[in-house]
Write a protein that binds this DNA or RNA. Structure first.
Lengths: 195, 195
DNA sequence: CCCTTTGCTTGACAGTGTCAAGCTGAGTAG
DNA sequence: CTACTCAGCTTGACACTGTCAAGCAAAGGG
């Protein structure tokens, strides 16, 4: 990544890049501060100048991932038609697509170790992500007096559960993952339609 | 746990107990082989005589947890009435109840690090657990040509996603968790009813 | 009584996160 | 041009980790 003997111009950015690369290529317990430092071409203690702990470095990477996920959801929603449930489903399918495309990253995004980092960067990014889903739920009819919170629980539960189980290979699908996801989500149409 | 200077009668069992206790009381990265050994009253290398790696020890604990989960699901299903969907929902609610009662354990049960241990004990226990769900799905009507695999994806996705999001505090519910879970699952009744 | 084997311990090694102290080079004041 | 300051990174150290090799000790068989 960086020529031997040289230091990268943007050390913080290089560390984030290195961490992301490691997360996507090696098992989680091999994503160490020192490995990131080596890959970024800096000393083993350089990360400490930018991140107070290992969890904080990884948390910063995950915050960025959350923002990308949010953006993907917004893009998909805006490309969908007028029907509120179609828009909600498009949002959910984008979520599933991101999760399946980045399984290691996705799994880490929901681990207490990283969620509990106190700098708030990740919490904020995760909040934005939830807001996009919340808006999509709020725009749909919710018959039977369903609250927005209950609607979010239903919608998020479906996509989060699907990504978790499929990316870990726990359910064997007899069709393409995204087709199966479409079927699972389509099943919620009646709960978010009519009045 | 064990008097100083004494070794436990059942070292393997003591290690499993210690690991379970640690999993439920300290952050995941503090659940070390050496901490388990200390708590069990044996030397730091004793675990190596029973488990080839740290992941294998934890995997054994998780296999046991899977068996308990399976048993809870069977008990709940058998206590439910005759209606196939009521039985499926009872199975799912037992799943959610277990997950929310043991959040740390549940989270570890679905991490690649431990799932990929090759001794097969955990895979077998997980398989049994999936079978119970599969049987419950198979017993329901599945209109629209829904396969058992697709039905399992829908049912498992809902409970797995719910436990993950609620136990990590990512969705704020405006009712008791188990009530919310009931609402989410009830929503699938139409997909598993009629003909 | 000796000898083997099983079951655990002791000791060591490379690797980790994190802290303290030191170096280095750029920028600024004199 | 020199001297000082100081941020930014490095070096070094510590306690801790998983894992391996070797050793001890007690139980069982001859």
């Amino acid at each position: 990544m960086v020529k031997q003997g040289e230091r990268p111009a943007d050390v913080r950015g290089a560390l984030l890049d290195a961490a992301l690369r490691l997360i996507e290529t090696v098992p989680e317990d091999k994503v160490s501060l020192r490995a990131c430092a080596r890959l970024a071409g800096v000393s083993h203690a350089a990360p400490a100048h930018y991140f107070p702990s290992r969890a904080a470095l990884i948390s910063a990477v995950l915050a960025h991932a959350f923002n990308q996920l949010t953006q993907a959801m917004i893009t998909a929603r805006d490309a969908a038609g007028e029907d509120p449930f179609d828009r909600l489903k498009a949002t959910g399918l984008a979520y599933v697509g991101f999760g399946l495309a980045h399984p290691a990253l996705y799994a880490m995004m929901f681990q207490p170790t990283y969620l509990q980092v106190s700098d708030g960067e990740m919490a904020e990014a995760g909040g934005h992500c939830g807001n996009v889903l919340g808006e999509a739920v709020a725009a749909t009819p919710r018959p039977g007096g369903m609250t927005i919170a209950a609607g979010m629980a239903m919608a998020w539960t479906a996509v989060h559960g699907f990504v978790g189980l499929v990316s870990h290979g726990l359910i064997l699908l007899d069709e393409a993952p995204i087709t199966a996801a479409d079927r699972v989500l389509e099943q919620q149409r009646s709960a978010f339609s009519g009045g």
